[in-house]
Amino acid sequence: MKKTSSPHRSLLAACLIVTATACSPIIEVRGNNPQPEQLAQIKVGTSTREDVQALLGTPSNITPFGEESWHYISAITEREAFFEPEVKERKVVTVVFDRAGTVRAIDNRGLEDGKDVVPATRETPTAGKELTILQQLMGNVGRFSKSPGDKK
Rank of each mutant, 00 (worst) to 15 (best):
V44F: 00
P59K: 02
T102H: 04
A22K: 02
T21R: 05
G128F: 00
Q135N: 09
Q136M: 12
K91N: 08
L111W: 02
K43M: 14
P34Y: 04
V92K: 00
S10R: 13
P148T: 07
V95G: 00
E130N: 15
V96M: 05
K146G: 10
G149C: 14
E84R: 09
T126E: 06
G31Y: 00
S5K: 08
G139T: 05
C23Y: 07
T46E: 13
G114M: 14
G149N: 15
C23K: 10
G149K: 15
S60W: 01
L137W: 10
S24V: 11
S147L: 15
V87M: 12
I27G: 05
A54L: 14
I42S: 04
P64M: 10
F97R: 03
Q41I: 09
F83Y: 10
R30P: 03
R9C: 07
P119A: 03
S60N: 06
I62V: 12
K2F: 11
N140R: 06
G128L: 03
K88M: 05
L134F: 13
W70I: 03
T94K: 00
K2A: 14
V95W: 00
F144Y: 12
V117M: 12
L12W: 05
E80W: 09
E37W: 05
T94L: 00
T94H: 01
T121V: 14
A75L: 08
I26A: 08
K43H: 11
G139K: 05
R143M: 12
C23I: 11
S5L: 07
H8S: 14
W70M: 04
G101N: 07
P25R: 00
L16A: 06
K146R: 10
S69N: 06
Q135I: 08
A75D: 00
G101Q: 06
V141K: 08
T124S: 08
N140C: 11
D150T: 09
T58V: 14
T4D: 11
D150N: 09
L134I: 13
V52L: 02
S147N: 14
V103T: 02
Q35A: 08
